[in-house]
Simulated scan of single mutants.
Amino acid sequence: MANNAADRAGCRGNGALVPPGALAAAPEPQRPEEGVVCDLAGLAFPGPQGRGAAEEIVQNAPGPTWACDVSGYATYAVTQEPRIVAGIRSSPGYVEQPRVTGRQVSGFDPHHVVADCAGTPTYFSLELGQKYHDAVDTPGTPRIQELFDTFVEAAGKRFGCSAPTS
């Protein structure tokens, strides 16, 4: 079915799509550690400081895609999967966006962008949940751009993104 859909869309590429031999077990929920959110040192907690009671589920398997859900607060995702990035880049509304931590980026909006990571196009996405929106006026809750900046810095290191040069 996937091969037929890829053929109809004209995006099959070289060779047939093949299902994985086995699927990894679903990750278990865990509590964020102090100074480490979603297994990323330096990532800001997406809610009021001192309220690390939220659980997170981190899809941390090796590969071109990483994701983390901090229950009710935020969902982070990164991919370097070429077919996904190509689809994003060819979508309507994909345009240059304001720089993120000094990096030139393009995307749909300032929190769904593609950056160049050591020559590899890398998509970063941040979706905010209702608990974040409910806490936005609570002291110690980081602003959206701060969350996104710390996310791109922390996740970027995992994906080979060096600090931008001026």
Rank of each mutant, 00 (worst) to 15 (best):
P64C: 00
A16N: 13
Q145E: 08
A26V: 06
R89F: 08
R12V: 10
Q49M: 04
A67N: 14
G63T: 13
C117D: 12
D109A: 11
I144K: 09
E33Q: 15
K157T: 14
V36R: 13
A16W: 08
P92W: 03
W66K: 06
R31F: 03
A154H: 11
A53R: 15
P82R: 07
V85F: 14
V18L: 08
A26N: 13
R51I: 02
P32L: 07
G13Q: 14
F108W: 01
P121N: 04
Q104H: 10
V152E: 09
Q59R: 04
G87M: 02
A155G: 10
F45S: 01
P82L: 14
I88Y: 09
A155E: 06
F159P: 00
M1R: 04
G72L: 05
P92T: 09
A74Q: 06
I144Y: 02
T138E: 15
G129Q: 04
V37N: 07
Q104E: 13
G42E: 05
G87N: 12
E153G: 01
E34P: 07
Q130R: 14
T150P: 01
P139T: 03
I57E: 10
F151T: 00
L128A: 02
V58W: 04
I88R: 00
E153M: 06
Q145L: 03
G156L: 03
A54G: 04
D116M: 13
Q80W: 00
G156P: 11
G140F: 12
Y94T: 13
L128Y: 14
S166D: 13
G15N: 04
G160Q: 04
A26R: 05
G160N: 10
V105E: 03
T141H: 02
Q130P: 05
V78Y: 00
L40R: 04
G47H: 09
G35K: 11
V36A: 07
E34Y: 13
D134I: 02
T75D: 03
Q145D: 15
G47L: 09
C68E: 12
N4P: 02
G35M: 09
V37L: 07
T150A: 05
P164I: 00
H112F: 15
A22K: 15
A9E: 06
Y123V: 09
P29E: 05
E34C: 03
D149Y: 00
L147C: 01
A74P: 06
G47W: 06
T150H: 03
N60H: 10
P48E: 12
P121V: 11
Y123T: 10
V136Y: 09
H112V: 08
L147T: 05
A155I: 08
